[in-house]
Design a protein around this nucleic acid. Structure first.
Lengths: 160, 160
DNA sequence: CGTATAGTCGACTGAAATGTTCAAGTATTG
DNA sequence: CAATACTTGAACATTTCAGTCGACTATACG
């Protein structure tokens, strides 16, 4: 998973959307103005978000965008994955070949890092972001651990 | 903190260096050949690593690079910070100004995310990477879950 | 119906970051 | 001195970032 400013733009815009959708669809023009993000850039981002079924659109006057799911069902990971989309590529070429000699020693590290980051980002929903006067995400974060899940120690780690 | 392929190249090169420095300085030409990274790109990366006192150089025949500290004193976070250098990241311009109306609601999120990532990357040293026959980092990592995510969505493996 | 609204699509742009390549140095060993 | 290897800097193709533009489609409303 890549972390760039692009994902941040998308998250910022989504927060704006989540905050205002109670009054009906939210226009990109409005988000653009409030968040100081170029309208056309928003169009690109929301095109991707729409194709990933994270938002839905309503055309025509009075139209705009709405969330496609409940706020607490949309995580930051979803948003970032949608806009940063196509990329790609665990270090070692494609899947397995790595290096003979070293067996791609960084593989585990990066896979693991990705997992960590994804877990964290997936633990924060739009709901968390909107309903937080201040540092609440921090608390939500620490709470994330493995006690939610009934013992299921499968070893998923390997796959690419 | 930004996560790109650049940091991964640097970490890969540093692992190679750490593994071989017992026999004296390691040349970039060797790293280049073994790790399939362009020599000139390595030169750029190691220039930064040197300026950050993560490695030291020995000129002349038989020269090359050495670690400037013990393996367990060099973390992945150090390496990435050195090469990705100009990193910044907090959304709101510099420090505080954010947005009046929203007070930069993403601020906490990103700050926290950065902290998390940094903590994790700072918890893994070169020593850990070199002295791990196989999945040790994975073991260290644990037991976190993938929660809601329906197991497989094609984009499991993200990566830098 | 016509028009204004607002999303949809595609192409195009300038700036920056990625990686690579070339070239000219300097320090050190032998 | 000559070979080795780091040091520096410039030029370069490619990709991504972020924004712009123009044309199109769907729809609410007067």
């Amino acid at each position: 998973m890549r972390l760039t400013t692009k994902g941040r733009f998308a998250v910022t815009a989504m927060i704006d959307l989540a905050q205002r959708q109670a009054n009906g669809p939210v226009t990109l023009a409005g988000i653009s103005e409030r968040q100081k993000i170029s309208l056309s850039y928003l169009e690109q981002l929301f095109g991707k978000l729409r194709r990933h079924s994270i938002v839905g659109s309503v055309r025509g006057p009075g139209g705009g965008y709405r969330l496609a799911r409940a706020m607490n069902e949309v995580t930051v990971a979803d948003i970032i994955a949608a806009v940063d989309e196509p990329l790609d590529a665990t270090n070692c070429g494609g899947q397995e070949n790595c290096q003979d000699e070293q067996r791609c020693m960084t593989h585990d590290l990066w896979t693991n890092l990705n997992k960590r980051m994804h877990e964290y980002l997936a633990s924060v929903s739009l709901y968390d972001l909107v309903n937080q006067p201040k540092a609440k995400a921090v608390a939500a974060t620490i709470a994330m651990d493995d006690r939610l899940r009934p013992a299921r120690r499968t070893n998923v780690a390997v796959s690419a």
